[in-house]
């Protein structure tokens, strides 16, 4: 019981800390996120534009590098603040692998993001995962630059 209260307190502290940082960046908008001020705070667009909805992976890998952890830290903070959202984490692979393995690899990437967000205090009950393997590329050129954009996990907000 007291542990739960403490966890809540800690989460609240994190949100307050972020608010202070945000306020420092944007004096006129004392809201959670900074960045593009034409975007309504707490909106899906806010999440995509100002937080970042996706992280990327190396070939055949599912480990989170520093850049990915940075994005996920921001996602966790945002989701702590806007608790009415549940999320689906979509795991993807590039086209340079075989279909069945890529389905599992996408799932493994989604699971890595899920575990990270849970460790950062997001309730597992708010998180669903799905893998699309190599079936949903966003970049379609035949180059490493495109394949690297497709090796991704995207956090999708599920309505308020």
């Amino acid at each position: 019981m007291s542990k739960t209260l403490f966890a809540r307190g800690a989460r609240f502290a994190a949100v307050v800390a972020v608010c202070l940082v945000a306020a420092a960046c944007s004096q006129t908008r004392p809201e959670l996120t900074s960045g593009n001020s034409s975007v309504a705070a707490g909106s899906g667009q806010d999440f995509v534009v100002n937080v970042g909805d996706r992280v990327f992976f190396l070939n055949n890998q599912s480990s989170l590098d520093g850049a990915a952890r940075g994005v996920l830290d921001k996602q966790a903070q945002w989701l702590q603040h806007y608790k009415n959202y549940s999320i689906t984490i979509e795991g993807h692979a590039d086209e340079r692998g075989t279909r069945q393995y890529n389905i599992a690899l996408g799932a493994r990437r989604a699971a890595a993001v899920r575990e990270y967000l849970v460790a950062k205090g997001i309730s597992p009950s708010r998180i669903k995962t799905i893998s699309y393997g190599k079936e949903r590329p966003v970049a379609v050129c035949n180059a490493a630059s495109c394949w690297s954009q497709n090796r991704r996990a995207v956090t999708v907000l599920n309505g308020q």
Binding site: Q100, I103, R108, A111, A112
Partner: peptide
């Protein structure tokens, strides 16, 4: 068939 659970199939 395969069943995916977390990181493992």
């Amino acid at each position: 068939m395969s069943l995916q659970q977390g990181s493992n199939a």
